[in-house]
Amino acid sequence: MTNEIEIAANSVLLVIDVQKGFDDADFWGPRNNPAAEANIAALMDAWQGSGRPVVIVRHASRQAGSVLAPDGPGYALKDFVAERAGRAALHVTKSVNSSFYGTPDLADWLTRQNAAQVVVTGIQTNMCVETTARMAGNLGYEVLVPLDATHTFDLAAEDLPDAPRLTADQLATATAVNLQGGGFARIVTTGRLVEAARTRVTP
């Protein structure tokens, strides 16, 4: 696999679930990668500044008591995304992990845009980001995942014997191995994507 990154003129940046509810540390526990938000913002600016499309995905939880419930304050986009949301090409609402099971239909929109490359960012690394990237890979898209533009939280399997727990960093590493090792996506960095996206798209 080549180390060079080529960003298509209509490469689509997916910004997944960057919502205020994920700031509730009492609900989620310890997180990783405090630079995630700044990196997501840099990618949004690079994509929108070069005329490439940004898709904003938001999670509307159906679980009782969720901090991402659509009628609660945590459903709102984080401020830095909300400030850039007016220039987004598409807004998708979902209630499951995959952004491809939302409204409006993401795959249908990508087909109409003749888009073949997607860049997947957001929250949580090992949940909605990984699930969306896996499905995008299965659907035949070229998928790039800047791991440093994602974050997640420590997680325990409470119902398993001894309740094994992984830290957020361990889960992010597992996601990187799953996606690239499994052939679903290519793991890259925000800096390399921003550099590669500097060429402006001609309208």
Rank of each mutant, 00 (worst) to 15 (best):
I123W: 13
L144N: 06
A136F: 01
C128I: 11
D148R: 14
C128G: 13
P146H: 11
L147D: 06
V129W: 06
N126T: 09
E130H: 02
I123L: 15
N126C: 08
I123A: 11
A149L: 10
H151R: 15
A149H: 10
N138M: 12
R134G: 05
M127H: 14
T131N: 04
V145E: 06
M127Q: 15
L147Q: 12
C128P: 08
M135S: 00
N138R: 13
V143I: 09
I123V: 15
L139D: 02
G137S: 13
C128Y: 10
L139T: 00
T125R: 02
G140F: 03
A136M: 02
Q124H: 08
T132F: 02
E142A: 04
A149W: 10
T125L: 05
E142S: 04
E130W: 00
T131S: 14
D148N: 15
G122V: 08
T132C: 02
G140M: 03
L147N: 05
G140L: 01
E142F: 00
R134N: 07
V143C: 03
E142P: 00
M135Q: 04
G122M: 08
E130D: 09
E130I: 00
N138V: 08
P146F: 12
L144G: 06
G140Y: 02
V145R: 04
N126Q: 14
G140C: 02
M135H: 04
V143S: 04
V129C: 13
Q124G: 03
V129D: 05
D148Q: 15
T131L: 04
T152I: 05
L147K: 11
M127D: 11
I123F: 15
C128A: 15
H151P: 08
A133F: 02
A149I: 12
D148S: 14
T132M: 01
Q124N: 12
N126G: 07
Q124D: 09
V143A: 05
I123Y: 14
M127I: 15
G140H: 03
M127A: 15
Y141G: 04
M135E: 07
H151V: 11
M127K: 08
L139S: 00
G137H: 12
L144D: 05
R134P: 05
L144Y: 08
G140P: 01
G122K: 10
Y141Q: 04
V143M: 07
M127E: 13
L139N: 00
